[in-house]
Design a protein around this nucleic acid. Structure first.
Lengths: 186, 186, 186, 186
DNA sequence: CATGAATGAGTTTTCATTCAT
DNA sequence: CATGAATGAAAACTCATTCAT
């Protein structure tokens, strides 16, 4: 009765694999996610990985990009609501404190950058996502009257990701302590 | 007569392995450097990897940290010579242009950050190197009268590494185009 | 049509590996049974060893305990049929003559004792099997009116295994020649 | 000038290797004693193992036999002093309580029996040691008027080694609880 | 008498992928 | 749509032994 169709169950398995992969990449590292571990963790027969996806790499790419897009899509509305450049900066630095550099989302970002540096297709796809976000941020900075909004957006995004990277080694790089310097950019 | 002692040959093999590993990490990725590939490329019998090093991971860590330290040590004198904050920034951004985000040195940095996020000991060692450089940069900024020199150094270093990351995806992030924004930090 | 299901073939491979391992332990020694030799001898692809078992040690333990249990289970009915303590002793010493100390079954016993001395889990499992047999022997000795049946069973079992050990070095320790002394125990 | 001659130092190294090997066999298992571990533990350069001994196996055999002989040689005088069969038995069972079945000496015995089962030369050498002890025990039993002293000695020795084996699995096989049954043999 | 670097085959274990059912 | 057994190469690491010094 309530039992879903075979097709629906298939789609669920696919989703489960993607979601599990996105969890596993930060946990183990992109290259250490194996079909067996993935299938086990997803509670799914090992053969299904290659049934639903052309290869493990393709699955990982889709999983990573999907989750990154989700995050950035969620950030958009928050930034749109900012009333001033200061508020904009505060919103972004606040989100920064959620990234310790060793949390799943930070690691997923870096793993994906690194995988992208070695895979043309992934690089193009990740580039599109980042560009979309840059365009959004550029528009907002322009609306707030910030000079050179495109370059400012680029530098600011790089700074945020760079801080994420550095905080893994130097945990005391808090948003609060760095805010005065960050504010100079605008 | 000129034939070197066994001990000297041993030290040469060790050095060759380290140097080859530092080349291979960016090329293949930290987790994809295998004993066999490493030994082949170094022109050395496979058993020697574990004769000279406790583990492959230990070898990779020593290789990566060694090369990173070399780079930063070479950067120090250049920065010391800067006559003004502008020149300081120019020197650093000039060096930035050497990093495309997909060149060996950039990738080695990011691979090492990532590996450090998962290995306590490596994290501590890498932290020390980065801190040393931060201290140097802080002192120089202070000497040049930059406000909040410690925080500025932290943010600037993060920005540089972040740009390195982003340029892999967006190659048009040149130092020249971003310089005006970077200058705001000082 | 007659072709067995994949699951059935899988079970057969598992059984073949166990049986081959039980042959190989006495032949080469517990610690000298390697995955490669085992797979070769079982006529099976090397990867299958770790597909069907968590580790080589786990496989060896299961194989050794299985075969030992089989032997003792077969001995039970024979002992049950004995009409007197003399017949009981004769049955056991007769079986002793089958053990030269260098035959597969003797070696399997000793190898397992030794492996058990170094592996908690194996020790517990082997202990259970031996205890079960001791209980059986104790009951029979009690039924035949032997004094201190529990202690007698323990000593007798130790003597049998000890003779097995010594006969490897001193082959002339035949059951016939020792029977008079053994009879004193009852 | 107390510094020993080179020859004397050589003999010391040899002795140290033998003694360390006799410690290591029970600890790791005969087949798991490696040249590197042995040399490390003995505080000696790895090359010395093959300098002083034809092979690792030869070293292990010499080490094991040496230590076993020491033990049995020490037991002789104690048994000679016994005034009655009861005292003889008590002396031997008392020494039994020192062997838990998982202590170094017990394990060394079993490891050596097992190695002997697979090595002709070692078997002959170990056989001689055991036979010497059997002869001693036979003479003592004869002197105390025990019937069939040779067979009794054989059975008793087997029982002692068998109990050693079984106590690894069943630690409650104490000499005290079994003494009444053991006494029946004499 | 001693050193310790070197060798290359050995070890257990894990891998992505395929395919018969 | 799903299963899970199978493959064979590759992973990290250890080995006994040799030998130039």
């Amino acid at each position: 009765m309530a039992s879903p169709s075979a097709a629906e169950r298939g789609r669920q398995v696919r989703r489960r694999l993607l979601s599990t992969a996105a969890d596993l990449i930060p946990e183990l590292g992109w290259m250490a996610v194996s079909t067996r571990v993935l299938a086990d963790r997803a509670g799914v027969a090992p053969g299904l990985v290659h049934y639903h996806f052309a290869s493990l790499q393709a699955l990982l790419a889709e999983a990573a990009l999907g989750r990154i897009r989700e995050l950035l899509d969620g950030l958009g509305p928050l930034l749109e609501g900012a009333a001033s450049p200061e508020e904009l900066l505060e919103t972004m630095t606040a989100s920064l404190d959620g990234f310790s550099g060793r949390d799943p989302m930070s690691l997923l970002f870096v793993e994906t950058y690194l995988a992208a540096a070695r895979d043309e297709e992934l690089r193009a796809a990740a580039g599109t996502i980042v560009d979309d976000f840059r365009r959004l941020l550029t528009r907002l900075l322009a609306e707030h009257g910030v000079a050179a909004p495109g370059e400012t957006a680029s530098v600011f995004m790089a700074t945020v990701d760079g801080l994420m990277l550095h905080r893994a080694l130097t945990p005391d790089l808090t948003a609060a302590s760095l805010a005065p310097v960050l504010r100079r950019m605008f």
